[in-house]
């Protein structure tokens, strides 16, 4: 595990932590089962993100990603902000360790979800609050090879049936 100096800076002194009580849009992604959960609050003036705040449950990378996405989005138009990709966040942070790349997905997903929430509210759509239970991996839940779909052992380095290297497992 080697975090870049930018990641460490954003982790130790995260920008824009908190909530906006009268937020125009709220995006919530992830769940604590996977290890990260993020809420993004936005305040919109005209077509720009005038203010943005976050709250995150997660590792060092998840907190740094949350901080960076708020910095990248602040002051941008909604259209520009929708174009911010997960890879932009990782890049702005000076890169993330390979096993932490999934954390960067959280940031852009939460931002986009907050913007969609704002647009839905504006168009008068009734916003159904997603209160679904997070998917808990069940005891004994099996792993399957994504190539030949045979049942394989957990954390196998490669599939013993087709020989293909197993991708790094992640939850997002």
């Amino acid at each position: 595990m080697a975090y870049s100096p930018i990641v460490l800076d954003h982790f130790k002194s995260p920008r824009n932590v908190g909530e906006i009580l009268d937020a125009d849009g709220l995006g919530e992604v992830g769940n604590p089962v996977c290890g990260d959960m993020m809420s993004v609050y936005i305040k919109v003036e005209g077509d720009r993100i005038a203010d943005i705040k976050f709250k995150t449950f997660g590792c060092g990378a998840a907190i740094a990603v949350s901080s960076m996405i708020t910095e990248l989005a602040k002051g941008k138009t909604l259209e520009e902000a929708m174009k911010i990709k997960n890879s932009d966040v990782a890049k702005a942070l000076g890169g993330l360790p390979p096993n932490k790349l999934h954390c960067s997905n959280l940031g852009a997903d939460a931002l986009h979800s907050a913007i969609k929430n704002y647009l839905d509210r504006k168009s008068g759509k009734v916003v159904a609050k997603e209160e679904g239970e997070p998917h808990l991996p069940e005891k004994g839940e099996a792993c399957y090879c994504p190539y030949c779909e045979k049942k394989v052992e957990e954390e196998s380095p490669f599939c013993i049936f087709c020989g293909k290297e197993m991708p790094h497992e992640h939850d997002h």
Binding site: M1, P32, G35, F57, A61, N99, E155, E169, D171
Partner: peptide, 21 residues
């Protein structure tokens, strides 16, 4: 989970009945 690299909560703690969060 995030530090262990497996992205799953400790099998020991889950084994004792603790919730994932």
């Amino acid at each position: 989970a995030c530090a262990s690299g497996s992205l799953r909560a400790s099998h020991v703690l889950i084994g004792t009945g603790m919730d994932f969060a």
